Computed example of a mutant assay.
Amino acid sequence: MNVNFTAKPINFKLGDYLNKGFELLKKDFGGILGGFLVTMLMSFIPFCGYLAMGNFYKFLRNKSKGIPASAGDIFNFDDFMPYFIIQLILTAGIIALYIPIIVMIPTVSYMDPDMGRTGLPVFFYLYMMVFYVALFFIIVKAFYLPALISLKGIKDIKTAWKMSLVMTKNNFFNILLFVIIAGIIGSLGIIACGIGLILTMPFAYVANYFAYEDALQQIGHDEIAEIGTKGTF
């Protein structure tokens, strides 16, 4: 059963999430690595990548709270439909954004510089700027979707999206910076010919988990406070 709550802008604590992620990873690296490898394995199943990620966050919640957790729990399909819908929407959106690029690239390559026609290349670069701005906007504004679906149990995508929009309000650059930092750390394993990815990539997921859990706790705390306040009258 879902607990109703009113979404609000979150006090985003970038440094805390990175530190807590490192501490949990250091405390139980073997168990978390096992869960991460199962997550990667499940991701090879068509349309199950986001589902595996969401289940991994449930796994990390149990690990962080000292609740027995098995990597096999990640093979759970209870949240398949919400994540399937998200993947369809994202795929359609990305295709829509890439269509103009696919059309413009051949046209740009056949232009004669001597003719002085520079309008299309300029438009192409402007479009690429818009493309990346739109991409970053979606990444940031959809940041809390996995938390709301997997950890809060909200199955309606429209509701989860609206809540994520509110929760990310006034934190766009903080969240974007967090995503970039976690992504860079998670990708450092490439230096070790790819093998190191199994050592660094789990960190990004663990740090994300603490960002999600803190956001839900902030809202949950407000709910309890609100109930207590109403009970005094």
Rank of each mutant, 00 (worst) to 15 (best):
I101M: 09
F75N: 13
I99T: 04
A182T: 14
M40P: 14
G194D: 03
L145H: 03
A225C: 10
Y50P: 14
P106R: 01
I184E: 03
F29E: 01
D214E: 07
T107I: 15
V103T: 11
D214S: 01
G228T: 07
Y132H: 06
N4C: 10
T6F: 06
P68N: 07
M40W: 00
P82E: 06
F178Y: 00
N62Q: 11
F47M: 15
F124E: 00
Y57V: 01
S70Q: 13
T39A: 15
K169R: 12
Y110K: 14
L120S: 02
F12C: 02
F77K: 13
I45G: 07
G34W: 06
I154T: 14
R117S: 12
K65H: 09
C193Y: 02
M53G: 14
N174S: 09
F44C: 13
Y98C: 15
K8D: 06
T168W: 03
L151A: 01
S70C: 11
L197P: 00
I149Q: 03
V108C: 10
G54Q: 08
N11C: 11
I105S: 08
I184K: 08
V103C: 12
L97V: 08
F12L: 00
A7Y: 02
G72C: 10
Y209C: 06
E226V: 07
M42V: 03
T118M: 12
T118K: 10
V3K: 11
I190S: 12
M128Y: 09
I85C: 05
T118G: 10
I175E: 02
N208V: 11
V179A: 12
G31I: 09
